[in-house]
């Protein structure tokens, strides 16, 4: 991870200009994933542009049309513990706090969280074939140890999963990603931000080189009455999800008016199912209905040698998390299954 220049950007425009210097130039904010990958020689760069000192993107502000705007350079911890997030968007708070560790959440930024790379073992090991790291080299995970890999939306090129927890909640909350770049500003719906692997698994998302995430908008609806985040993993904390679920329900007299169910740890992006959510609309909030939704969401899921359990696990996790959303106060630290 040597031989790069380091500079601090003072404005977004300055940052965007600086990153044009070369195709290998990179922004750094929290650095928790980028510096890690640089140490493993998975990512190399010739220029690091530090955006932490760009002012104006470190806070939460209310938007005129309702909803709020999360600064991209604000840390995950500050976001999760912000009173507005805790009170109006507790699902987001819960999801953030289920990820990584307190130290990493103090460093990692909201923009950076969206740009995490997969935790696939083979992606991290530069001595094994990996289409995501080295297009055309092959996928070692398909015939390898694939316990942590995808069951939905995978391709013959890549079965890696996207590791974020925060993004699972953002997908459920239908956030919007605001981007600045050499050709001006634009916004993407959250579900359009990350990509499925297809034939180009090396491209994680629809951000182009030179573009930077400046903020994330949340619509006014925060589902603060009925929400839950559940994370299932190989230890109780500080591990990536095998399956996670964000559930947000709007209920009226026990009837589901609106539902959002997003899965993490199962696909190349946070996974939502329009069919599943549509099914639930107008139905009673019962275990039976949640069980049927789970079946719909997992339609088309396919496992590999070591991860087929994720299909049944995801179904059960959806049911449990929907039940937990009926009583959000029963949630446990670390998004563990409640008693």
């Amino acid at each position: 991870m040597n031989n790069f220049t380091y500079s601090k950007a003072s404005t977004v425009q300055d940052a965007v200009n600086r990153v044009q210097q070369g195709p290998e130039a990179k922004f750094v904010a929290g650095g928790t994933n980028l510096i890690d990958l640089m140490k493993y020689h998975v990512i190399t760069t010739d220029a690091l542009i530090d955006v932490n000192h760009v002012e104006g993107y470190h806070a939460i502000e209310a938007r005129g049309e309702g909803g709020i705007r999360l600064g991209a350079f604000m840390t995950n911890a500050k976001t999760a513990y912000h009173p507005i997030i805790e009170q109006q968007y507790p699902l987001l708070s819960r999801a953030i706090l289920a990820g990584a560790s307190a130290q990493i959440r103090n460093m990692a930024t909201n923009g950076g969280n969206l740009l995490q790379r997969t935790r696939c073992y083979y992606f991290y090991d530069v001595n094994t074939p990996c289409n995501k790291r080295e297009p055309g080299s092959g996928c070692s995970a398909i015939g390898g140890y694939n316990r942590i890999m995808a069951i939905l939306g995978a391709s013959e090129s890549c079965i890696a999963v996207f590791p974020s927890d925060m993004c699972v909640a953002l997908a459920a909350l239908e956030a919007k990603v605001n981007i600045s770049g050499p050709h001006g500003d634009r916004s993407l719906a959250f579900t359009d931000f990350h990509r499925l692997p297809g034939n180009t698994p090396d491209i994680d998302n629809n951000l182009s080189h030179g573009e930077i995430i400046t903020s994330i908008d949340l619509p006014s609806k925060g589902f603060s009455d009925n929400y839950s985040y559940l994370k299932l993993r190989d230890r109780n904390s500080y591990a990536f999800a095998l399956v996670s679920v964000a559930t947000a329900l709007e209920l009226e007299d026990g009837i589901v008016r609106e539902s959002r169910i997003a899965l993490g740890g199962v696909a190349h992006k946070p996974w939502r199912s329009a069919e599943g959510e549509a099914f639930l609309q107008g139905k009673e909030a019962t275990k039976e209905n949640f069980t049927r939704v789970a079946e719909i969401i997992l339609t088309g899921a396919a496992g590999y040698q070591y991860n087929s359990f994720k299909i049944e696990l995801a179904k059960r996790a959806i049911v449990r998390n929907c039940m937990m959303a009926l009583n959000p106060e029963t949630q446990l630290p670390g998004a563990q299954p409640s008693r």
Binding site: Y121, D125, D234, R235, Y238, A239
Partner: peptide
Amino acid sequence: MNQNLGEYHIPVHAD
């Protein structure tokens, strides 16, 4: 394949 402490899971305090 998991030559690191992120994927070689030893217990955390929460365990």
